[in-house]
Nucleic acid binder design. Structure first.
Lengths: 141, 141
DNA sequence: TATAGTTGTAATCAAAATGATTACAACTAT
DNA sequence: ATAGTTGTAATCATTTTGATTACAACTATA
């Protein structure tokens, strides 16, 4: 299986807010039409990003506003904000047989390698900031 | 979401075959009781591993046998053999709005970074061989 | 060659996760 | 007071997963 699209939706949402926020009021409806998903999906995303301290949203008045500096938001931060891989990236079969020498030790043998692989992925995400993405984006607009 | 347990099941299966194969006949039933899943799940796993050229299984006579050298099987090879992330590790929202400057360019901006992250994970898996795992396992048995 | 023990695979099922959608209360600016 | 929002619960359909049943096909061997 794959990592939930909540992640790319959240990145898209932040880019929209930071890039278009001065020109438009960034309501969930507006963002939803850029991302092309249901506005409720965006409201949930905004809620996560707000909890993570990246943006501000107020019920009633509406419109999301940037809070954090673009250099202080990495892809990893966003990935964490929307709970992509709670409890580890890899699924593990539940009850290996403890009476079998392999079943008994499979976790001891495998866990650290899986964790290393997950960390490698996450470190890569830590190396990309929203500022980087905006820089790339501005060259294309 | 997470990477399917087919992967850890396959690693467990190979370890069982390579470590216990001299002592026992490695039928799907036998392996299933070590992994603690349904024998059919193991037969499907064996089928994938056979297609990848790692083991041999014959209908009728039964019992899986090692084919490849343990130094020539990495965690990445196993991960590929059981199709963990066909079509990319990350889900992407399907139809970003091409009329929006962000929607239009979100793929151009994001794809390479996601691909880099996936490659970082996979490179880590390439660095671990079945020989490494067996070495660790033998210290514990 | 008949048989017992396997594998290969299709079909079905239940469970879990995901995202879509509806609905509506609560809030805020004007 | 109102219009436009957000926040969130509830429901739904879809997809994916792994479990399970069932059975044909195959092989060694008695």
């Amino acid at each position: 299986m794959k990592i939930t699209s909540r992640f790319t939706v959240a990145v898209h949402t932040l880019l929209a807010i930071y890039v278009l926020g001065k020109e438009y009021k960034m309501t969930s409806d507006f963002i939803a039409s850029s991302v092309n998903v249901n506005p409720v999906v965006i409201r949930r995303t905004l809620s996560s990003l707000k909890t993570a301290g990246m943006i501000d949203v107020k019920a009633g008045s509406g419109g999301a506003l940037p809070v954090k500096d673009v250099n202080d938001i990495t892809l990893y931060d966003i990935y964490m904000a929307v709970d992509c891989v709670e409890g580890g990236l890899f699924n593990f079969h539940e009850n290996p047989n403890p009476k079998c020498p392999v079943g008994k030790n499979i976790h001891a043998v495998l866990d650290s390698h899986l964790s290393d692989a997950q960390m490698a992925l996450e470190n890569e995400l830590k190396g990309v900031t929203l500022a980087n993405l905006m820089e790339q984006l501005n060259l294309l607009i």
